[in-house]
């Protein structure tokens, strides 16, 4: 009887664990099968089928840099084959941007950057033909560029080291009897203080971006700024297809975005959000 009492919870535990494993395995199989069919379709020159599979993957919440990269490539191939649907270049750019953002593989990042460059060149070429401004990538702000030079964790480590060095130098300056030591402490503190300030600021900026920054890519030929009534603002500068924009505010049918120095309200359907690594 005692053995039975012990065996029942154990059996239940095993059964639950098995069920969970089956569920996970099933989801993995599904993801794997969809990606395999997408890869085969790309290889066979069937970008439409590849897009269907890769979009189905995205609908299931699967986030993988290679899936994003292949999705971008599939849209680009569809455009190249003359079967381009409106927004294909933007979706291709979104896939490449997402792959760059997510991947740790330098080769993949390089390929995605190359694909992005091809797409943006094509967009720029078309805008030149249409007589529109050709700037498709205004770049990021100086602070964001500096913060992006190193990873958030690296900035954190630098901040801790600078803090320790600053404290040691201050102790040397305050407690040492020898004049040389006191001077060394003063100089060290003078260097460590701005380093600490910069590292803390960059850590905070990187953390803020990770927590708050949401970005998207324009997936229509031109995102036209709209007003509160949803009417296109006459004469406003359009945001080009494939442009990476910062989502300032999103509210159902419309979103407020920042693109370089432009801050505008555009239809949410004109944007596709970028997945983030964290």
């Amino acid at each position: 009887m005692r053995r039975h009492r012990g065996a029942l919870p154990l059996a239940l535990l095993v059964a639950v664990a098995r069920l969970l494993c089956v569920g996970t395995a099933s989801a993995d199989d599904d993801t794997g099968a969809l990606f395999a069919s997408a890869a085969a379709a790309l290889k066979d020159g069937r970008p439409q089928d590849a897009i269907a599979s890769l979009e189905a993957l995205a609908d299931r919440g699967a986030i993988d840099p290679v899936a994003s990269y292949d999705r971008g490539l599939a849209y680009a191939m569809r455009a190249r084959m003359g079967a381009e649907a409106p927004g294909d270049l933007g979706r291709a750019a979104q896939g490449f941007e997402e792959a760059r953002e997510l991947s740790r593989d330098p080769q993949l990042v390089e390929d995605a950057s190359r694909g992005l460059s091809v797409i943006r060149s094509e967009v720029a070429r078309r805008r030149v033909r249409a007589g529109e401004p050709v700037e498709v990538d205004p770049g990021r702000s100086l602070a964001r560029t500096v913060a992006g030079l190193l990873s958030e964790d690296t900035w954190s480590v630098i901040a801790v080291l600078a803090s320790v060095i600053l404290a040691v130098c201050l102790f040397m300056r305050g407690l040492a009897r020898a004049r040389r030591v006191r001077i060394s402490g003063g100089v060290g503190a003078g260097i460590a203080t701005p380093v600490l300030t910069l590292a803390v600021a960059m850590t905070l900026a990187a953390r803020h971006d990770r927590m708050r920054l949401r970005e998207a890519v324009v997936v229509v030929a031109s995102a036209r700024p709209i007003d509160e009534r949803g009417v296109t603002v006459p004469g406003a500068t359009t945001i080009p297809e494939g442009a990476r924009v910062e989502l300032v505010e999103a509210s159902g049918a419309w979103s407020r975005v920042r693109f370089g120095s432009i801050e505008a309200r555009v239809a949410s359907s004109a944007l596709r959000a970028l997945a983030r690594p964290d």
């Binding site: 395999a36 890869a39 290889k43 290679v66 292949d70 490539l73 190249r80 991947s103 993949l108 091809v118």
Partner: peptide, 14 residues
């Protein structure tokens, strides 16, 4: 669209 990179057939893992 000349110069597109080639496709990948293995997931990197998220």
């Amino acid at each position: 669209l000349p110069g597109l990179p080639s496709a990948r057939d293995r997931l990197e893992g998220s």
